[in-house]
Each structure stands twice: as C-alpha cells, then as structure tokens.
Measured scan of single mutants.
Amino acid sequence: VSSEIYQWVRDELKRAGISQAVFARVAFNRTQGLLSEILRKEEDPKTASQSLLVNLRAMQNFLQLPEAERDRIYQ
C-alpha cells in the first residue's frame, strides 16, 4: 500500500463531493468514524497493523477503479 493513500482519499472526497461516511461505506464497508481516525493518524503503511493494512488496501483498490465507475457507486 502506498503512503500516498491518505492524500488520495482526501483528493477523492473533494473531487467527488462526497462525505467520509459515503466513502467509508462504499470503499471498505466501514464507518465514517474509523475513516476519520485513519486519516487523522496517517500511520505509515510499512509499519501498520494487519487490520489497518486490510482497510488501506481496500481503499487503494477502490480508488484504482475508473472514475466513472466510482461515481456510479457513490450514487
């Protein structure tokens, strides 16, 4: 997982004009609270716990989908 993931998520929230709650639900089936905590802490993926890595990997995989497909999912 790239250490850029945190910025990618922030950029996607702005680009798509969606809330953290929507992104958390569709990208990795978690709550806004968890996403907020992940973004606030910005732990280095190289030293992250296994559970954090699973979530970061799910977010990264979601962000690799084509933009149009992500936008459809947000609706």
Rank of each mutant, 00 (worst) to 15 (best):
V1M: 08
S2R: 08
S2G: 10
S2L: 04
S3Y: 10
S3Q: 09
E4P: 03
E4L: 11
I5V: 09
I5Y: 02
I5E: 01
Y6N: 02
Q7V: 15
Q7A: 15
Q7R: 15
Q7I: 15
W8T: 15
V9I: 15
R10E: 08
R10D: 05
R10Q: 13
L13G: 00
K14C: 10
K14D: 12
K14A: 15
R15K: 01
A16T: 11
A16I: 03
G17S: 15
I18A: 06
I18P: 02
I18L: 08
I18W: 03
Q20H: 10
Q20C: 05
Q20A: 07
A21C: 06
A21I: 06
V22F: 14
V22I: 12
V22G: 06
F23N: 02
F23L: 04
A24S: 14
R25N: 14
R25H: 15
R25M: 09
R25F: 06
V26F: 01
V26N: 01
V26E: 03
V26L: 09
V26Y: 06
A27E: 02
A27L: 08
F28R: 05
F28L: 13
F28A: 06
N29L: 06
N29F: 06
R30D: 11
T31N: 10
T31V: 02
T31E: 09
Q32Y: 06
L34Y: 15
L34C: 14
L34K: 13
L34D: 15
S36I: 06
I38W: 02
I38D: 03
L39S: 01
L39H: 00
R40V: 08
R40M: 12
R40F: 10
R40H: 09
K41I: 10
K41M: 08
E43K: 09
E43D: 06
E43I: 13
D44K: 06
D44F: 02
P45N: 01
P45M: 03
K46W: 04
K46V: 12
T47Y: 11
T47G: 10
T47K: 12
A48I: 05
Q50E: 15
S51E: 13
L52H: 10
L52D: 08
L53N: 09
L53R: 09
V54G: 12
V54I: 13
V54K: 12
V54A: 13
N55K: 10
N55E: 07
N55G: 09
N55P: 06
N55D: 15
L56G: 01
L56A: 00
R57E: 11
R57V: 13
A58E: 10
A58Y: 06
M59E: 00
M59C: 10
M59N: 01
N61L: 08
F62L: 06
F62Q: 01
L63M: 08
L63I: 09
L63P: 04
Q64K: 14
L65F: 06
L65M: 12
E67I: 10
A68P: 14
E69F: 06
E69R: 08
R72H: 14
R72P: 00
R72K: 13
R72S: 13
I73E: 15
I73W: 08
I73H: 09
I73P: 00
Q75F: 11
Q75K: 14
Q75V: 09
Q75Y: 14
